[in-house]
Design a binder for these strands. Structure first.
Length: 533
RNA sequence: GGCCCAUUCGUCUAGUGGCAGGACGUCAGGUUUUCAAUCUGAAGACAAGAGUUCGAUUCUCUUAUGGGCUACCA
């Protein structure tokens, strides 16, 4: 049997990180078995522009390397695959004929209750603390009954006529044997008065039609499973195997991670930090950083700030699944080889941005220089710090910077922290506090920098190693510690208090820029001291 | 309210009828020109109660807590 799994997003305009994990598990299961992973678009309820709202989702999966064998085309305007159309909105006849079949076989009925009548019964049951079972007072099973209700001006929906005896038992690939009393299952509406069909019906019809063998989805659907099994049985379909995954919980909490509560998550220190570093990058490259549309709950966020898709996927794999007591890192091939539903945990797993960042950092550090450069370059170009296309000379310069920055670049957008290397010497801005602390306050800073310029002008070899030697010698001759000059030098040449190694910095900048920048810094310094006196 | 599900360090997890292991994070110390990084070390968990048992984190029951469904949402 070919394994066929599916993920069924609604076109909402964004790809939720919890959804990505569900899709990933489906994808892994299919890949492992040499089967197919299908994308089905649940757009029955959609009033918005589907193509537009679908695109970010398709782009997200494409970026993550979670490819689908059947489903919409990459631009979302058409379908590709042997089952025709993978958009629910265009499969309405299929649902209609299923409804007709269920009505004819007596597994569903037309219900003429008014909404308040139905909910009245439910509330009464709740008040009496008993299980709610619909009285079926307004059920019409014959045309005469229906006509009589219609004469009263009532409108009908189609409800499932659920069994009221026995149990629904099924085996869940994650949770083991599960059982529900049939009597506890309400007569779910499957078709509205306007003819549109509802989720429970549509999903069963589609899963059968697309020959889905494994339905892997979040646990909130566990309680829907009995009615879906009932629909499948009534229609004469074989039910797929079910696997219900624990949901991804909010940072530091146990509630389901939701896009809506983003404001609340921003109270979480770690989540906020990740958002903040992302938003800083976004601002520099002209992306709207509004937390409503740009935040770490959405897959886009990670692409936009320069995460590696492999890192995101690796982190998500470990959220609710593990291979053993040690293995943390998996290539795609290893994931596909080792994944199993049996090792999915049952409890919810909360989203931890620190761990995700740590995984990303490891992946980034292992990247070779060439790939790092390739990842970082677009950020500098979008920020207007490097022209497109890049000149050869600048390519080499960038390479040097990234090499010197070493593991200080966690996400590719972090390269913007080193923007100081890309501005013209005369435009270099000195951060106020460090300038005060390292240049204004220490009395000899100006003098030492002036002497250093003389030194720099004459050294033979402009390489980090020899610069270090030269500068240490210089300090000795001046009778000062290296710390006395290095801080001032850093602020003078980069404008900032922190950066990568001082001698690497000098080497990267080169003699000319180093001397020029110190010159500008000394100018600034004397301006201030003059103003003060 | 009813039904169903879950619960191991702060977080993600491993594991077993007999010493609870790893990762991220945290803390302390070393190294260091800043920031990182790195090295060494430390702290840190079986939700509670009862039962079965020589022995229970592990099996059973009860409670608590969290969550889901109970929609003319998906």
């Amino acid at each position: 049997m070919t394994v066929r799994t599916r993920f069924a997003p609604s076109p909402t305009g964004y790809l939720h990180i919890g959804g990505v994990r569900t899709a990933l598990f489906n994808w892994l299961l299919a890949k492992q078995a040499g089967g197919q992973f299908i994308l089905r678009i649940d757009d029955t309820d959609s009033k918005r522009n589907v193509a537009e709202a679908l695109q970010p989702i398709l782009d997200g999966f494409t970026w993550l390397g979670i490819d689908w064998d059947e489903g919409p085309t990459k631009n979302g305007t058409d379908s590709i695959g042997p089952h025709g159309c993978y958009f629910q909105s265009q499969r309405l006849e299929k649902y209609q004929s299923a409804v007709t079949q269920l009505l004819e076989s007596g597994h569903a009925y037309r219900d003429f209750s008014k909404p308040e009548e139905y909910s009245g019964e439910r509330e009464a049951a709740e008040k009496e603390k008993r299980d709610f079972v619909y009285s079926r007072t307004w059920m019409a099973e014959t045309d005469e009954q229906a006509a009589a209700f219609e004469a009263e001006g009532r409108k009908s929906v189609v409800r499932l006529k659920m069994p009221r005896e026995g149990k629904c038992e099924f085996h869940d690939l994650v949770r083991g044997d599960v059982s529900f009393e049939w009597a506890g299952q309400s007569d779910t509406v499957i078709q509205r008065n306007d003819g549109s069909c509802l989720y429970n019906l549509a999903t069963v019809v589609d899963d059968c039609d697309f020959e889905i063998t494994h339905v892997v989805r979040a646990v909130e659907h566990l309680a829907n499973t009995p009615r879906q099994i009932f629909i499948a049985q009534s229609l004469g379909f074989e039910s797929p195997q079910f696997a219900h995954l624990p949901f991804v919980a909010e940072p530091g909490g146990s509630k389901k991670l939701s896009k809506r509560d983003i404001e609340k998550y921003l109270n979480n220190k770690d989540f906020k930090r990740l958002y903040k570093s992302g938003a800083d990058i976004a601002e520099r490259i002209g992306i709207q950083g509004d937390p409503k549309t740009f935040n770490p709950v959405l897959a886009d966020f990670y692409r936009d700030v320069g995460f590696l898709p492999d890192a995101v996927v690796n982190y998500l794999l470990l959220l609710g699944w593990s291979l053993d007591d040690k293995t943390e890192e998996f290539t795609r091939e290893e994931m596909i080889e080792h994944f199993s539903l049996g090792r999915v945990v049952k409890g919810q797993a909360s989203f931890d941005s620190q761990k995700l960042t740590a995984v990303q950092s490891n992946y980034m550090n292992r990247l070779n220089l060439k790939r790092k450069v390739k990842m970082c370059l677009p950020f500098l170009q979008k920020a207007g710090l490097i022209p497109t296309p890049i000149e050869c000379e600048q390519q080499a310069y960038l390479k040097q910077i990234i090499e010197a920055a070493d593991d200080r670049i966690c996400m590719a957008g972090d390269i913007l922290k080193f923007d100081t290397f890309f501005v013209a010497d005369e435009d270099l801005e000195f951060e106020e506090k460090p300038f005060q602390k390292r240049l204004v306050k220490p009395e000899q800073a100006g003098f030492l920098l002036g002497e250093a310029v003389k030194l720099f002008a004459t050294v033979d070899d402009w390489m980090a190693d020899s610069l270090e030697k030269d500068l240490k010698q210089f300090c000795e001759s001046q009778g000062v510690g290296i710390g006395d000059i290095i801080h001032a030098l850093r602020v003078a040449t980069t404008g900032k208090a922190a950066g990568f190694g001082m001698f690497d910095t000098l080497e990267v900048l080169g003699r000319e820029k180093t001397i020029a920048r110190i010159g500008w810094a000394l100018d600034e310094l004397s301006d201030r001291t003059n103003a003060a006196t």
